[in-house]
Design a protein around this nucleic acid. Structure first.
Length: 844
RNA sequence: GCCCCGGUGGCGAAAUUGGUAGACGCACAGGACUUAAAAUCCUGGGUUUCGAAAGGGACGUGCCGGUUCAAUUCCGGCCCGGGGCACCA
């Protein structure tokens, strides 16, 4: 056979796909658009084009979506499969600073490298739709959408305690700060009161929560979003200060425990603290407040197990019993959640229980466990109310309602829902982002930039470094900041920029109509494509991008700009590709290139000492980062694609091995050798097609079709390998029809070889749009099969019998075959599973 | 602490509704072809035990128990790994 020169063949097809724009998706109004063809939109989370380029881990999601896109085209869908660059934002800017280059320049270089790498993988993107969020032609519309959200009342400016990162010299959103450290760079952050631009995402909290039920998303991501939104139902309860009659309101999810209150606890920052503190307590309370303020959030968390509080000396009146309740302050109460004040019920809340322990406050049991449930000093589960006057005997569930109603009647409380989610801090004091399309006049009032003036171009600044004083770098571009409107009025531009999330909040919509210069996207395009059918990306975006994008989408829905309530119908998280790493006996990491295999073991090259193999993230320090360029050069793109999928199901984490790819390369070589003649041309069977080969092909097709349900393409590839092995063992060759069948089935996975053999079969048309083969179960049926004979569940024998054998025939046959085990035993019964097995149950 | 996901050979893994555990591949061992190598092809293997061999027995999907004729699959209790949340009242 002629040796398969994969790189030559792959480059040939890749260049044809490119120049003939094979994967261009047609929009309504385009030449050749067929309104009867159904749309299918499959989207990757677009990458931030980093300086280090793609590694094999990024590629797995892209290959997965590419297989889906190619499959859907063959099923007759008009497939939208675009790619672009999430180029604005901190990562690009930090990289630019560290390499001392302008982010524009860096972005262009990195983008070119990413585009080259993606094309190398043979991904069937519609490159005509490529977008770059840092391109003025794109961010013009990001700014336009911002204005629509502004007009809808979704943007405000307010001084509030926000996260400030001194290292990054900017504020960050709550979602971007994890355990007091920045999500990007892992730098320490602190709370500072600052005036910032904020999105009113809390106004959509309920809908963001409820509509999760409309989505075909992984349970874990939906859970993370619902936890982040953190809705809790409860009541606000008013306590009157004994001294002044002023109201202190607490929030509680357990109004049924109201009779168990032994104290009120206010956050140290609560506005009433100074006012109510008794003279005798003043010094202690002030010291406590001061100490709490000086503690960072980290320290507060670190000391979480210790609940402390200080008595203010003030008392409030219990709204139902009229009893006196002391007021404490404690730093376990958060100022910005609920009302910044809680009622302490030590018998039924863990923290309050700890509080009672440290302050000597009494326990007051008002909930008894339901029958059969163990009681504890601190019983936090639902139960039955007791010591609660008229409410005794009510369940927790009923009690919540009845107590709240009683409070409402006395105007001392009301049902209330609170959320953990905070409004979204949207301004950044950084250079590399979209400027706000806002102006401020001399009175300090906000003026919107006229839509026809958009985009507000990011000024070209040589010195784009963040300012030391916390102001935005754009403030230094004096000429840019100061403008006059038509009437000559002096105005100043807002100098903050938008966060990196802005561009990714709507890019999936721009892909539907990327070149529109009159609108962000046309009505026709939206009405045709509607939503993303399949969205694939890493799980790390579960809250942040996916929450922000859903929020923008819902506002756009309310304005009438989009037609679906949700942007991403089905979400799929691809698993991380990890790599093997090594450590020596002392636990020290040993770089991969210093290790070699000796038999079944791994040893250090230099001294032969044994090292232990384990799985870790790919890391430069371990020298186990694998670059797809190298793999493709060595093994070919089709082999690379197959192996990425063959390693395991798309959603599970799996380690890369350079050796593993040999199996996929071998499969392709074997397939080539099976299909082609040494002197060139194809090895085609002329006469009657082999039934065995049809059986193998249809069996493989069944499993391939099934793999599109769970995206476990490893099973599809295994099925094709098995099919090929069977074909080779049969000793027959494929007919033209059979070879076409195989190539079509292979095409989404290894598109280059499929295209090559397809064209050798004489086709002038693209295999990419050939109809996907029809599965025919009848073709897989055999006349006989191996019936498994068991005695008491243990396999004793296997016999070949005709298919669909009746039980009446099978039972005596089995008994006869199993005579050796059955003689002299009492047969209790015989269980016959048609076409599978027979289990004879005996006694004695 | 709470929630979610996972644990199957030396390794990656497979196994419709409970019905032959380990498909497919890697690595390994042995062999064929070759002056040699590359390439290609063939064979082998869960563990253990009996047997000279052919072949057989027992055990085996993290651990312990349960349901069932039959459990990787269902139920209960644990152990380990990964991820998320963590004073949210």
């Amino acid at each position: 056979m002629a040796r398969y020169n994969y790189r030559e063949v792959e480059l040939k097809w890749q260049s044809k796909w490119d120049t003939e724009k094979v994967y261009r998706a047609k929009n309504p109004g385009d030449a050749g658009f067929d309104p009867k063809q159904k749309p299918y939109y499959v989207l990757d989370m677009f990458p931030y084009p980093s300086g280090s380029g793609l590694h094999v881990g990024h590629a797995s999601g892209y290959i997965g979506t590419d297989i889906v896109a190619r499959h859907k085209r063959m099923l007759g869908f008009n497939v939208l499969h675009p790619m672009g660059w999430d180029a604005f934002g901190l990562p690009a800017e930090q990289y630019a600073i560290s390499t001392n280059q302008h982010p524009r320049q860096i972005t262009d270089v990195n983008t070119a490298n990413f585009r080259r790498q993606l094309k190398l993988i043979g991904l069937s993107y519609d490159w005509d739709r490529e977008i770059d969020t840092s391109d003025p032609k794109y961010y013009r519309w990001t700014q336009w959408i911002f204005l629509q959200l502004y007009k809808k009342g979704m943007v405000y400016r307010k001084e509030m305690p926000v996260w400030w990162c001194e290292e990054l010299k900017t504020v960050l959103a709550n979602e971007e700060v994890i355990n007091g450290r920045s999500e990007r760079g892992n730098y320490l952050c602190e709370r500072r009161p600052l005036t910032q631009w904020v999105f009113k995402i809390t106004a959509y909290a309920d809908r963001l929560l409820e509509d999760l039920s409309l989505l075909d998303w992984p349970e874990s991501v939906r859970k993370m979003q619902s936890d982040w939104i953190g809705k809790s139902l409860g009541a606000e309860i008013d306590f009157k200060l004994e001294s002044s009659g002023e109201t202190v309101t607490v929030f509680s999810t357990r109004p049924d425990t109201l009779f168990g209150v032994v104290a009120l606890v206010l956050a140290p920052e609560h506005p009433l603290v100074a006012k109510i503190t008794a003279p005798a307590q003043k010094a202690a309370v002030e010291a406590y407040v001061k100490r709490a303020a000086s503690k960072s959030d980290r320290e507060r968390k670190a000391e979480a197990e210790k609940i402390t509080a200080e008595n203010t000396g003030a008392f409030v009146i219990h709204p139902l019993t009229g009893g006196k309740v002391p007021v404490y302050i404690g730093d376990y109460v958060l100022a910005d959640y609920g009302t910044g004040a809680v009622m302490a019920v030590p018998s039924h809340d863990e923290r309050d229980f700890e509080l009672a322990k440290s302050t000597g406050l009494p326990l007051k049991k008002v909930i008894k466990p339901a029958a059969g449930v163990d009681d504890k000093d601190c019983f936090t589960e639902p139960g039955v109310m007791t010591n609660s006057g008229e409410f005794d005997g009510l369940t927790t569930e009923d009690g919540k309602v009845k107590v709240t109603a009683a409070l409402e009647k006395r105007s001392a409380g009301r049902a209330r829902t609170t959320y953990k989610i905070r409004d979204w801090i949207f301004s950044r004091q950084r250079y590399w982002g979209e400027p706000f399309p806002l102006l401020i006049d001399e009175q300090g009032d906000i003026v919107l930039v006229e839509e026809i003036e958009l985009p507000v171009q990011l000024p070209d600044m040589k010195d784009f470094q963040p300012s030391a004083d916390g102001s935005s770098p754009l403030a230094r571009a004096k000429d840019w900041v100061e403008v006059r409107d038509k009437s000559g009025r002096k105005l100043k531009r807002v100098t903050d920029t938008m966060p990196g999330w802005a561009g990714s909040c709507w890019y999936y919509l721009r892909f539907m109509d990327p070149h529109n210069t009159k609108a962000a996207f046309s009505k026709e395009a939206i009405e045709y494509w509607r939503e993303v059918d399949l969205y694939v990306g890493g799980a790390s975006h579960a809250v942040m991008h996916l929450l922000y994008a859903r929020f923008w989408h819902k506002v756009l829905y309310d304005i009438g700009l989009v037609k679906e309530k949700e942007p991403f119908k089905k979400l799929f998280n691809q698993g991380m590709v990890t790599a093997f790493a090594f450590k020596d006996a002392t636990g020290r990491l040993v770089p991969t290139d210093e290790v070699e295999q000796k038999g079944m073991d791994y040893v250090r090259k230099s001294n032969g000492e044994p090292v232990e193999r384990f799985i870790s993230k790919m890391a430069k320090s371990l020298r186990n980062v694998v670059n797809p360029d190298d793999v493709i050069n060595a093994k070919g793109c089709d082999s690379f694609r197959l192996y990425e999928m063959f390693m395991g199901p798309l959603d599970s984490e799996k380690p890369w091995t350079d050796d593993g790819i040999a199996g996929c390369e071998g499969f392709l070589k074997k397939l080539w050798n099976t299909c082609t003649l040494e002197e060139g041309g194809l090895k085609l069977h002329a006469g009657e097609p082999s039934e065995k080969i049809w059986r193998s092909l249809h069996k493989a097709l069944k499993r391939t079709n099934d793999s599109f349900e769970l995206f476990n393409f490893n099973t599809a590839i295994a099925a094709m390998m098995e099919g090929l092995n069977e074909i080779r063992e049969s000793g027959d060759t494929m007919t033209r029809e059979q070879m076409e069948f195989f190539m079509k089935m292979l095409s989404p996975f290894a598109p280059h070889m499929a295209a090559e053999i397809w064209s050798m079969l004489g086709h002038q048309t693209w295999i990419d749009f050939a109809a996907w083969p029809e599965y025919d179960a009848a073709k897989t049926v055999q006349n006989d099969f191996e019936l498994v004979l068991q005695v008491n569940g243990k396999i004793r024998k296997k016999i070949r019998v005709p298919i669909n054998m009746e039980e009446s025939l099978a039972v005596p046959l089995a008994h006869q075959e199993l005579a050796e085990w059955l003689t002299g035993k009492e047969i209790v019964r015989s269980i016959y599973v048609k076409n599978k097995l027979m289990n004879v149950v005996i006694k004695g």
